[in-house]
Simulated assay, not measured.
Amino acid sequence: MSTAEATESTLDFTVPGLEKPCKTWYTIFGSLSKSVRPLVVLHGGPGVPHHYLLPIADIATKYGTPVIMYDQLGCGNSTRLPEKNGAGDFWTVDLFLSELDNLLTKLGIKDNYDLLGQSWGGMLGACHAIRQPKGLNKLVIADSPASMELWITAADRLRTGLPSDVQETLTRCEKDGKTDTEEYEKAVEVYYDRHLCRVKPTPAELKKSFEVMKEDMTVLLTMNGPSEFFITGTLKTWTIIEDLHKIIIPTLLINGRYDEAQDEVVQPYFDRIPKVKWVRFADSSHTPQLEERDEFISVVGQFLGLR
């Protein structure tokens, strides 16, 4: 499927207490207009830039709906702050909510928009939605945990299905503080091949995200940790379960059969959001937009009411 014409630019983003000027890079597929509600897409990580979500631009091509993607502060084409590595009091959910509000305001769309968040992006999108912003019309939460405790429990279970030598390598490297080694990285890839993206060869979009992420892992290491399943950062105790009833807009919940976000990890969203639909992709893991691209676009497009 061809991709809609894209334009890109940056927005100034003022961070309280930070003298360094910051910019948020964004790209728009299609054209913004008053008559068509745009879809804003939030990437995961935190700190894994937008490239792996590029198939979602098919929404613009297929339906004529503008799609906006951006790299969150600290990664990709946006301002990077390696001097803030380990600064848990700086890299907060509120910081990224402020950045999202800044983008919505400066693009002139805060009064009418839809939101799709993937993985960490879905967590961020849910945090945005519980504030009940008046312009948010519909929300898509894709492959996202309702709490990191549930995520970690599921990851521990999924790890037991890996070959015994891979499990041993992962555990030993994590215990010995050697998660930055090639040995650990290769063992992690075995897990990712099963539960992150099952398409082989690895899609170019995902490879690009990981390549750019590795240039500066400040946000990822501070908030998450060295891998998708070894959580050592500030998000380790994150949960939104008790606030989910505050999401009053129609919400689409997505995960994959082999997803790191297993059914029990996303179940609280389904149980507590009043207007919610849940679609599980039978042949996908954590990236259904790459693994079942056409079906993903169709499901999201139908939910958003696009024709």
Results as ranks from 00 to 15, higher is better:
Val190Thr: 05
Val265Cys: 00
His51Lys: 01
Gly121Trp: 04
Ala261Lys: 03
Gly47Pro: 03
Phe270Ala: 12
Gly161Asn: 07
Asp101Cys: 02
Asp216Ala: 14
Asp94Glu: 10
Ile231Pro: 10
Ala146Gln: 13
Ile248Arg: 09
Val140Gln: 05
Asp89Val: 07
Asp294Met: 12
Cys127Gln: 11
Phe90Pro: 02
Lys175Ile: 12
Glu205Tyr: 09
Val140Ile: 15
Arg37Trp: 09
Asn137Lys: 12
Pro133Ala: 12
Asn77Cys: 00
Trp25Pro: 01
Leu206Ala: 10
Lys200Pro: 05
Asp283Thr: 11
Lys178Cys: 12
Ala154Glu: 13
Asp283Ser: 10
Phe303Leu: 15
Ala87His: 07
Glu292Ala: 15
Val190Ala: 00
Cys197Asn: 10
Gly121Phe: 06
Phe13Ile: 02
Leu42Pro: 00
Lys106Asp: 04
Val199Trp: 06
Arg293Thr: 15
Thr7Cys: 03
Lys106Ala: 06
His50Glu: 07
Leu252Arg: 03
Leu32Ser: 05
Tyr70Ile: 07
Val266His: 10
Pro133Asn: 13
Asn255Gln: 01
Lys84Phe: 08
Lys134Arg: 08
Thr287Phe: 07
Met123Gln: 11
Gly108Pro: 02
Phe29Val: 01
Ser147Tyr: 14
Trp91His: 11
Lys62Met: 03
Ile240Trp: 02
Leu95Ser: 09
Tyr191Thr: 09
Ala282Asn: 04
Gln132Cys: 13
Val276Asp: 04
Val15Gln: 08
Thr234Val: 15
Arg80Val: 07
Asp216Trp: 11
Asp94Leu: 03
Ser147Asp: 07
Val190His: 00
Ile273Pro: 07
Arg131Trp: 07
Ile297Asp: 13
Tyr63Asn: 12
Gly135Gln: 11
Val212Lys: 15
Asp111Leu: 00
Lys62Asp: 11
Gln289Pro: 08
Val93Gln: 12
Pro288Arg: 13
Pro16Gly: 06
Thr234Asp: 12
Ser2His: 03
Gln262Tyr: 03
Leu42Gln: 03
Ser9Ile: 00
Gly44Met: 06
Lys134Asp: 06
Gln302Asn: 13
Phe281Met: 07
Gln132Leu: 06
Leu116Pro: 05
Cys75Trp: 00
Val41Cys: 10
Asp58Pro: 01
Tyr63Leu: 08
Lys186Cys: 02
Leu97Asp: 06
Asn137Arg: 13
Ala204Val: 14
Thr14Met: 06
Ala4Arg: 06
Val300Leu: 15
Gly76Tyr: 02
Val15Leu: 06
Pro46Gly: 05
Gly161Glu: 09
Asn224Ile: 14
Val190Asn: 00
Glu168Asp: 09
Leu73Glu: 11
Arg280Gly: 05
Pro226Gln: 14
Val48Cys: 03
Ser2Tyr: 02
Leu42Tyr: 07
Ser33Asn: 04
Pro163Leu: 08
Lys246Ala: 04
Val67Phe: 00
Tyr269Asn: 05
Leu158Lys: 15
Asp58Met: 07
Ile241Trp: 04
Ala60Ser: 06
Ser78Phe: 04
Trp91Arg: 14
Arg172Cys: 05
Gly88Cys: 01
Ser33Phe: 02
Leu304His: 09
Asp271Ser: 06
